[in-house]
């Protein structure tokens, strides 16, 4: 009897410690990656990094100004496409789609789209826009990122709209507002911070994406804002520099990683803060 009790106690101690150890091991990679990115990247960050073009192969100095601007442009194009689309689809999922057969199907497809490998999205947009226009372009890159962002915004909008108490919606309807005005003027403003959280999460998700840009936005060694021309981006630049042979490129890649990671983590923390302070 006693020995059984002791064995159970021991097993308990052992397994609980293993679970704790698993939790600790789980955060080691984040610390390791973050530490290296900060240590290696900090040295590459200066004013030139944000204002200069990359220097010619192998030479020191230069910056990634064009890639910083390019990433911002790509994210802006993607957000401009995906936000209205995703919000409307999210409203459908939360309201009109309830009790229909199409609603759950769209919800499932949205989740499935969210899980499609991003490189495949890149191939898709390559066929859709690059082959047809005959050129890599910022627009193609933005569309690819928009496709990735869309399900994130649709599902967070759905959740935010569902969080609006039905009493608020009913008050608007009882006042004699048609459904669409009640939704746009009363329900959506009430769900505002939830939807904003979704957009921020969507931006965080796409701003570090590389694979969908390889065959769409491609890359560019020079300044460009033209949406019909190839455009540089931080993630693609990191990839090209990290796999290149030059020491100076590697340093720049770490610097770009630091900028990118700071941006993405800040966006994620902002989204968390926003959704908690609601």
């Amino acid at each position: 009897m006693i020995s059984t009790y002791r064995r159970r106690k021991l097993a308990n101690m052992l397994m609980l410690s293993l679970l704790g150890a698993a939790a600790l091991v789980a955060v080691v990679p984040l610390i390791a990656v973050a530490a290296y990115v900060v240590l290696e990247g900090a040295g590459a960050i200066n004013l030139d990094f944000f204002t200069q073009l990359p220097s010619p192969a192998g030479e020191a100095g230069g910056g990634m100004g064009n890639a910083v601007v390019g990433t911002l442009e790509l994210v802006a194009i993607a957000s401009a496409l995906a936000t209205p689309t995703g919000v409307m689809a999210g409203i459908y999922l939360a309201q009109q789609g309830r009790g229909t057969r199409l609603g759950p199907l769209v919800r499932l497809l949205s989740d499935v789209l969210n899980g499609v490998p991003t490189i495949v999205v890149g191939l898709f947009v390559y066929g859709l826009l690059v082959l047809t226009t005959g050129s890599f372009s910022a627009l193609a890159g933005g569309v690819a990122l928009g496709v990735i962002m869309l399900p994130v915004i649709a599902r967070t909008t759905e959740e935010a709209v569902l969080q609006v108490p039905s009493s608020v919606r009913e008050a608007a309807l009882a006042l004699g507002l048609p459904e669409w005005r009640a939704t746009l003027r009363v329900v959506l403003p009430t769900a505002r911070s939830g939807i904003l959280t979704g957009v921020i999460l969507g931006v965080a998700r796409i701003s570090g994406e590389t694979a969908p840009l390889l065959f769409t936005a491609f890359g560019n060694s020079f300044w460009s804002l033209d949406p019909t021309k190839p455009i540089a981006s931080l993630p693609v630049q990191i990839y090209n520099f990290a796999t290149g042979p030059y020491e100076s490129w590697h340093r720049q890649a770490w610097g770009a990683a630091l900028v990118l990671m700071t941006m993405v983590l800040a966006l994620n923390l902002a989204a968390r803060w926003l959704s908690r302070s609601r």
Binding site: V33, T210, H250, L260, N268
Partner: peptide, 24 residues
Amino acid sequence: ILGTMVEMLAAVPSVVYGLWGVFV
């Protein structure tokens, strides 16, 4: 704290993992 950190792992761009993988 740990929950947030584990979720932040998902936020790190995959190319940054690649960079860390190549050099570390």
